[in-house]
Design a protein around this nucleic acid. Sequence first.
DNA 1: GTAACGTATCACTCCATGGTGACGTCAGTC
DNA 2: GACTGACGTCACCATGGAGTGATACGTTAC
Lengths: 101, 101
Amino acid sequence: MVTSVDSDVLKALSDPLRMQIVRLLAREALCTTHLVEETGARQTNLSNHLKALRDAGLVDTEPCGRFTYYSLRPEAVEALAGELAKLAATAREAAGRKRSC
Amino acid sequence: MVTSVDSDVLKALSDPLRMQIVRLLAREALCTTHLVEETGARQTNLSNHLKALRDAGLVDTEPCGRFTYYSLRPEAVEALAGELAKLAATAREAAGRKRSC
DNA sequence: GTAACGTATCACTCCATGGTGACGTCAGTC
DNA sequence: GACTGACGTCACCATGGAGTGATACGTTAC
C-alpha cells in the first residue's frame, strides 16, 4: 500500500494522555518523575502509556543512573505527518471525482 | 495550547477500518454501497464508522437521490498533518535538551 | 398506491484497553 | 550489608467502543 499510514502510531497518539506526554517530550527530554509531576497521572499508569509509545516507536529511552529519560523521536512524527500530507494531496487532486452508482 | 492536535481526529483515524475508508475516499467520492463492496464490512458497521468520521469532521456527505456520497475533507487531514509536522519540528530543535532530575 | 432499495439509528453483546494496587528489580546512599 | 527511591511488570476490574441484527426512514421504480 502506498499510503500505509501506520495504524499503530495513530493508535498510540489517539489517547489524550499519551498525546500530552508526546507534547511534553517534544519540548525536552524528561524522566518518569517529571511526567508524573506534569500530568498528575500515577507512575504506574504513565509507565504503561510510555511502554505503548515505545512499542509504537514514538519515543526513545535513555537510562541515566536510576532514572530513565524519555525523548520524542522526531522522525516518527515526521513520517506520520508526511503520510497524512500525501493523503490530503491525493484527496485534493481527486476532488469532484465520484464513482457512479 | 499551541499544538492542540485534535484528539478526536486522531481517534477517528486510529481504527484500521476507518483508515481504510479514508484512504478509499481520498481517491474518489463513494457511497455506502461502494464501501461495502470495497471493504467487505457490513452496511450497519460502515454506517457507524462513517458517523464517527463525520463527527470528527473528516468527511463530507452529499445526498444524491437515495444514495449518500461520502468524500474526504482534505483540509481536515492537512490540518492534522500540519500540527504533527510542527510538533516534529519542535522536537528536532529541542533535541538534546533534558530537564535535570 | 406498493415494493424494493439505500441508508441511518437503536439496543445489545463482547472484547480491547485504560487505570489501579501489589510486587519485583535495579541503582544509589548510608 | 540494609534501606530508599525510581521504574517496570503483572493481575485484576471497569469502561468504552466495535460489531451485529432488527428496525425505521426516505427515495425510486413499478
